[in-house]
């Protein structure tokens, strides 16, 4: 859509960066947001199709920076993919409420706020599509991920409620729920697993551990007009983990 952009958060991360490249290659204008400004510049500084917004989008300052970047590029937001996030694995006995609050803020709180901004009359774009990121952990009872699973379950509730509110304006909201994907984020906790646990994890994904491209492809589909009759859905993208 000419004069419009897609906002991708977590754009310097494993899946987000792949999605940005994929969307930019398709001719779209992208606003790439990430907490790691240096990495954003490194990845996309030379790409004129990608505007960069560095900051923590869960803070007022980071949120305003993102909106300013959108305004500076004079684009309406026709796409939103929220890949920013983190995990803080801990067994239930060591899980902390403040960790859950931080996880909920980034996984569900920020998209709640941004979708609210997109829903305002001045910002609405008919045909716009948002893709949030849940996780197989929200469905399958992932040991050691109670806080993360709860935050990701919140994403799915938000997806359905926002989809219902935005459908009358021709706007769609969906989510992807990946299994374990080989990214820096997942390696931070798989590095804590012993061989027995790693073998079990691999075995639990009959099609293998996922790659960032596989999840980015699902997100790109949901963002595209090819998914124009799909809203409020969570697409499980987990290599058979949930079978």
């Amino acid at each position: 859509m000419d004069g419009f952009c897609t906002v991708v958060t977590g754009a310097a991360g494993g899946i987000g960066s792949v999605l940005v490249r994929r969307l930019a290659a398709g001719g779209g204008k992208i606003v790439a947001a990430d907490i790691d400004g240096a990495r954003l510049e490194q990845l996309f500084g030379a790409d004129g199709r990608v505007a960069r917004s560095a900051g923590d989008v869960t803070t007022d300052e980071g949120f305003e920076t993102l909106l300013r970047t959108i305004a500076d590029n004079s684009c309406g937001v026709c796409g939103f993919a929220h890949f920013a996030g983190f995990d803080a694995p801990a067994p239930l006995a060591l899980a902390k409420p403040e960790t859950f609050s931080a996880l909920a803020a980034v996984h569900a709180g920020f998209p709640l706020r941004f979708l609210g901004w997109m829903s305002k009359k001045a910002n609405r774009v008919r045909g716009a599509s948002a893709v949030l990121v849940s996780s197989a952990a929200a469905h399958g009872g992932a040991k050691g991920h109670a806080a993360y699973s709860a935050a990701k379950a919140a994403v799915e509730g938000l997806t359905r409620a926002a989809a219902a509110e935005l459908a009358p304006y021709g706007m769609r909201v969906n989510a992807v729920a990946p299994g374990v994907v080989d990214t820096e984020l997942s390696r931070a906790w798989t590095g804590k697993l012993d061989k027995e646990q790693l073998d079990a994890l691999a075995k639990a994904h009959p099609l293998g551990i996922g790659t960032p491209d596989q999840v980015a492809a699902a997100a790109a589909f949901l963002l595209s007009p090819d998914a124009s009759w799909i809203t409020g859905q969570t697409i499980v993208c987990d290599g058979g983990f949930s079978l």
Binding site: P89, A90, P91, A93, L94, G144, K192, L193, D194
Partner: peptide, 10 residues
């Protein structure tokens, strides 16, 4: 192994 994981997290 979960207890091992818990020790690492602690």
């Amino acid at each position: 192994s979960m207890k091992g994981f818990a020790l690492l997290v602690m």
